[in-house]
Design a protein around this nucleic acid. Structure first.
Lengths: 142, 142
DNA sequence: GTAGGAATTAGAACTATTCTAAACTGGCTG
DNA sequence: CAGCCAGTTTAGAATAGTTCTAATTCCTAC
């Protein structure tokens, strides 16, 4: 089973919508992202997924993640030149990257602020997406 | 000579302030960024700089760029997994990345908006920097 | 002048990712 | 139900961008 928020059939539907099949590998990769929403790298996903599918290859994990990104079930997130991280949170949100620990946190973005940010673009710039990333440290009171 | 906006002595000062020496390589790398502010990659900087210093190595270009970033003369900018690009614009600003051409544009950010963006961070998150990147296309009217 | 640290260099090494080609799977046709 | 075909998975090779290593060169201070 995939999650409380998206069952196997709905998942298969989303894939089918892009002309893709559901497979055990894709399900398990997706569910690995949902069960611990900590923005893992492809390597980390690979390690976790092996518990369930011990023979899955890293290439397949990359393929599955890419597939999930393409059908908008997952977002890819990059910090500097670090390895790509994956995030199943589809709400518009910013990321906070703790430089000391490497941990990543989702930060909610009020939609009016998002609109205001997009409105700084001069004429002739047509944005599909905006990415907002904070870098810094987190403290105990969080 | 380095630029209309920062002469060789001021440049050397900035370096000295971080305990670093001025060198021909560092000057030329920096000036390559200033003369065409188009966010070149390390490879592109290398190609340009060779016109002046034909024997400069790519490793040195990387070293110089890293040095300039460390003493806050230059910003490093990343889009997805693409090669790092370098930007001598130190004003707070966002970047617009044209997906069709790969070109990068600086977008001014009103300081009140920047403040508003930083204020979405809950307690316990202490941001040193925020990066804002738009992806999309540019049109003729720009 | 010379010692010693800083900077440069060529090339090797490394990391994250993508590519390649072969094997496998699973539904649809006849 | 056998066979086909496209989609998928896989291991391993290849690639791109960057960093590392070790040797050399360059300053700067004594």
């Amino acid at each position: 089973m995939i999650s409380a928020t998206l069952n196997s059939e709905a998942f298969a539907q989303k894939l089918a919508h892009s002309g893709l099949r559901n497979t055990p590998q894709r399900e398990v990769v997706y569910s690995a992202l949902l069960t611990r929403r900590d923005h893992p790298t492809a390597d980390e996903v690979h390690a976790r997924v092996r518990a369930e599918l011990p023979t899955i290859s890293l290439a397949t994990v990359y393929n599955c993640l890419e597939t999930l990104v393409q059908c908008h079930l997952v977002r890819a997130v990059n910090f500097e030149r670090g390895p790509t991280r994956y995030c199943p949170n589809l709400q518009p949100h910013a990321h906070f990257h703790d430089e000391a620990t490497g941990a990543t946190f989702d930060i909610d973005l009020p939609s009016d602020l998002l609109a205001k940010i997009k409105s700084v673009l001069p004429d002739g710039y047509d944005a599909d997406a905006v990415e907002i990333t904070f870098r810094g440290k987190t403290t105990a009171t969080r």
